[in-house]
Amino acid sequence: MAQWSDPVEGGVEFPPPHLGLTWRRAQVSDLERMLALAAQATTGVNHIRCEPMMLARLARMNVLPEYSDVIAGFDSEGVMQAFASVIVNHLNTPIVRAQVEGVISRNWRQKGVGRAVLDWQDGRARQLAMTVPGATGIQIDSLAEGENSELRRLLAAGGFTPAEARTFYLANVSQLAQVGREALDTLRAEGFQARPLAAKDLAQLQEMNNSTTSRSSFLKPAGDEDWRLLIGMINADASIVIADSRGVVAYDLLEEGRRGAGLVRARGVREGAPELVARHMFAAHVGLVASRFTELRILAGDDDPIVDSLLADGFSPDGTLIRYSIEI
């Protein structure tokens, strides 16, 4: 079977064709099949590979080709059976972080494809990361839901080790709607605005986001292109911004999923903000979206100070997301 040629000059070779799949760079027209494969790979409800995220990855490959790649594998009938991505965050040198993800159809597992994909991702991540000015080392990350034991075994076999786990916290919006309305009333009584995201907020939010993520081992700052792609994933009307006379105090940016579920993709609180804001922000978000959502999910580390507030407001733990890592 012929293998498509790699259009990236000096690119790492695709997974070998003797395994039965032919590979090429992914395209926007591949999105529907990619989503179907991602749904197969997700064993629980915490679906982190959804349409806005996939579109953002494909868009990033075009706007930052020197730091991104997404490939897809097809069987002899031209049906997509796998895809894999490499995304390099070119900020925060000298140690450059690359994130890799991949999905393989159930019918094509246990055939060596997964390990071959990891080999391609390893080589491509190293190649792209070492083009970053000032880079002296690489950290390659991959995310797996805690219940996805098959992916976790594959990552372990490929040399990845668990580096950090975070917990999804779930709010049943209808059950917590009254708590949410009370939180909104409390914030407004103290002189804060609580409203959906507006275009005028974006510059300040990017600055706040980068200030917060620069101190995180799980997240990294977003450059202008990455920030625009992130905002493209967000439902502005379902996101919440809390502001005072100086501007944004806190924010939750929500990605709208299927069946009335929302996942917070980015959040932040201004340094020195009153404790009242951090305490009531998530409940207030529930109140803001109560008429249009059934569920709201927030991802947080066990040592994150927001956990106590989430539990007090009625959020409940609902699965984990584990970061696996290789440091080079």
Rank of each mutant, 00 (worst) to 15 (best):
Met1Glu: 08
Asp6Arg: 07
Asp6Trp: 04
Gly11Leu: 04
Glu13Gln: 12
Glu13Cys: 08
Gly20Arg: 11
Arg24Asn: 03
Ala26Lys: 09
Val28Gly: 00
Ser29Ile: 07
Leu31Pro: 11
Ala36Pro: 06
Ala36Asn: 00
Ala39Met: 03
Ala41Trp: 09
Thr43Ala: 10
Thr43His: 06
Val45Ala: 13
Cys50Val: 15
Glu51His: 07
Ala59Asn: 13
Ala59Arg: 14
Gly78Lys: 08
Met80Ala: 11
Gln81His: 04
Ile87Thr: 11
Asn92Val: 13
Thr93Tyr: 07
Thr93Leu: 11
Ala98Arg: 01
Glu101Trp: 01
Ser105Gln: 02
Val113Trp: 08
Arg115Asn: 06
Ala116Thr: 07
Gly123Asn: 07
Ala125Arg: 02
Arg126Cys: 12
Gly134Leu: 05
Ile138Met: 05
Gly146Cys: 11
Ser149Val: 14
Glu150Gln: 09
Leu151Thr: 14
Leu154Asp: 06
Leu155Phe: 05
Leu155Lys: 11
Gly159Glu: 07
Ala163Trp: 14
Tyr169Trp: 14
Tyr169Val: 07
Leu170Val: 11
Leu170Asn: 10
Gly180Leu: 08
Arg181His: 09
Ala183Ser: 13
Asp185Arg: 12
Thr186Gln: 14
Arg188Cys: 02
Ala189Val: 00
Leu202Cys: 02
Gln206Val: 03
Met208Leu: 15
Ser214Met: 07
Phe218Cys: 03
Lys220Asn: 13
Asp224Glu: 09
Ile231Ala: 01
Gly232Glu: 09
Met233Gly: 13
Ala238Gly: 08
Val249Pro: 09
Leu254Arg: 05
Arg258Gly: 02
Gly268Val: 04
Gly272Val: 06
Pro274Val: 01
Leu276Thr: 06
Ala278Val: 05
Phe293Glu: 03
Phe293Val: 04
Glu295Gly: 08
Glu295Cys: 07
Arg297Pro: 03
Gly314Lys: 03
Pro317Phe: 06
Ile328Asn: 00
